[in-house]
Amino acid sequence: MSYLILYGEEYEEIKKILSELKEETGARVALIVEKNGQPIAFSGEMDGVDTTSLGSLVAGNVAATEGLARLLGEQGFALMFNEGQNENLHINLIERKFILAVLFDKRTSLGLVRLRAKNASVKLEKVFTKLEAKMEKEHRKMGEKESPFEDISEDDIEKLFK
């Protein structure tokens, strides 16, 4: 399948897990990105940071690190940590398909973020497994309510460029 549908129920579950992770750790932002760079959901204050750009760069970072791992004969590096003067970024993979990124500052510690991110990842993994199963089962039944494409015309597309 060349697309992913984030059904409302699972989307809310993902947001809740991210929100809990953010609260438990005192992090600024918790973000889920699909490995191809699509931002899925986030919790926290982005302060004008473009989540789409952030998603692309996080995914690019993960992809480059994976390339590096392969070159070194590793299957992958499941965890990455970027330390800045004020902000730190903790990144880990979920099911090898999704990326959990946690942006945090001095108000919390790497150890706590690492521990809670691991717990959140287990929960998120379950949601994504459920989401995939649901997509398999339901995508053909998706009616107009869910799909904007049922009666899309070339005219509709033309209008996007006017």
Partner: peptide, 13 residues
């Protein structure tokens, strides 16, 4: 892989 989010009513490709 396009991402369709009915809750946010958006499609990202």
């Amino acid at each position: 892989m396009a991402l369709l989010n009915p809750r946010l009513r958006e499609l990202i490709s």
